[in-house]
Design a protein around this nucleic acid. Structure first.
Length: 323
DNA sequence: GCGCAGGTATTGA
DNA sequence: TCAATACCTGCG
């Protein structure tokens, strides 16, 4: 089946958005596990041209009874994940009116938000991404899924869900705690803990955040009902969540398109494009982005980052800030 | 070997 | 409010 909408699937998948790691590529398709009415389905998404996506899916090998497949729900889920209800044409009209943004359109045409399947996965992924490299945090999240997620067999391979907050809040934080509980086990054999996934000092943040979400001290369903400011203040209470991570969570996990996640690179890019190279504090960059770009802020952030990457601007700025 | 990578928490002025 | 500093870990 085809789904028609402007998208660059590869760019969207591999742009390092903290909603989740990129999906696994099997025979030219990006394969992602989703759940429809609590049933696992493997989505297989590929692209022939810039204006459409080829959609296929598989059921687990052990459960081939296709009678109850809700195709409408599957397409709704795909539309959510790739933000198909958002009109890229309107974004390009908006960006086209800004001389600083206009060049980014062609460099990133079809780049879309890669929305989280699961807000909790997005929260943990985003915490894990802080002061980290894309390669390392995506690997860590994949490892977490393989250790504690549910495993399903498909013709295209084995895929794991991301563990629920109930599961993750019970996982050992590090090898010291694990070996303390299992006294007979040497520390070097303790691999059933968060830190063994290469998350470093973020292990305690991820563990505590899981507990807070699971206990509903902060409830995911409540965040959806809040306005942006309240949601931002609420999510900032999670350990390991500062302004940058909070905005990533709100953008990729909760659909707040007015979030403008501001890190060192966005700061450098915005300083260069809009402040004549004068170094602007990250907090001011965030305010500037939200004021100037409004409900396009999240997309503009995404486009600016990848425009800088692909245009050579980032290399230029890297040299400037090297010393 | 050493600095850096899409920040945050903590501390002290 | 704000600057300074430590922090896991893998990679070049």
């Amino acid at each position: 089946m085809e789904l028609n909408n402007l998208i660059n699937l590869k760019l969207t998948q591999e742009s390092g958005q903290t909603s989740q790691p990129p999906w696994q590529v099997v025979e030219n398709s990006y394969c992602g596990l989703i759940e429809i009415a609590n049933s696992p389905i493997l989505l297989k998404v590929s692209q022939n041209n810039i204006n459409s996506l080829k959609i296929d899916w598989e059921l687990p090998i052990s459960n081939q009874s296709s009678s109850s497949i809700d195709e409408i729900a599957i397409y709704e889920e795909i539309a959510n994940i790739f933000d198909f209800n958002f009109n890229l044409g309107e974004l390009y009209d908006f960006m086209g009116n800004d001389p600083q943004l206009e060049p980014a359109i062609d460099f990133c045409k079809g780049l879309r938000l890669f929305i989280a399947r699961d807000p909790f996965e997005c929260i943990i992924s985003s915490i894990c991404s802080a002061n980290n490299s894309i390669a390392r945090w995506t690997k860590s999240i994949a490892t977490i899924s393989s250790k504690w997620g549910k495993s399903y067999e498909f013709l295209s391979g084995t895929f794991n869900s991301f563990p629920s907050s109930a599961i993750l809040s019970e996982v050992y934080e590090d090898e010291l705690i694990e070996s303390g509980v299992n006294g007979d086990k040497g520390i070097e054999f303790c691999l059933n803990n968060l830190k063994s996934c290469g998350v470093g000092y973020r292990a305690s943040y991820m563990k505590k955040a899981s507990e807070i979400i699971n206990s509903e001290e902060i409830a995911i369903s409540d965040i959806f009902k809040m306005d942006y400011d309240e949601a931002f203040d609420t999510i900032m209470k999670l350990p390991g969540v500062g302004p940058k991570v909070a905005d990533c969570i709100l953008l990729y996990g909760f659909g707040f398109n007015q979030a403008f996640p501001s890190d060192v690179w966005i700061k450098r890019i915005v300083s260069h494009l809009y402040f004549n190279g004068k170094d602007i504090p990250v907090s001011k960059v965030r305010e500037f982005g939200m004021d100037k770009f409004g409900n396009y802020a999240g997309y503009v952030q995404l486009y600016l980052f990848h425009y800088a990457r692909k245009s050579g601007l980032m290399d230029k700025l890297r040299k400037k800030y090297l010393y």
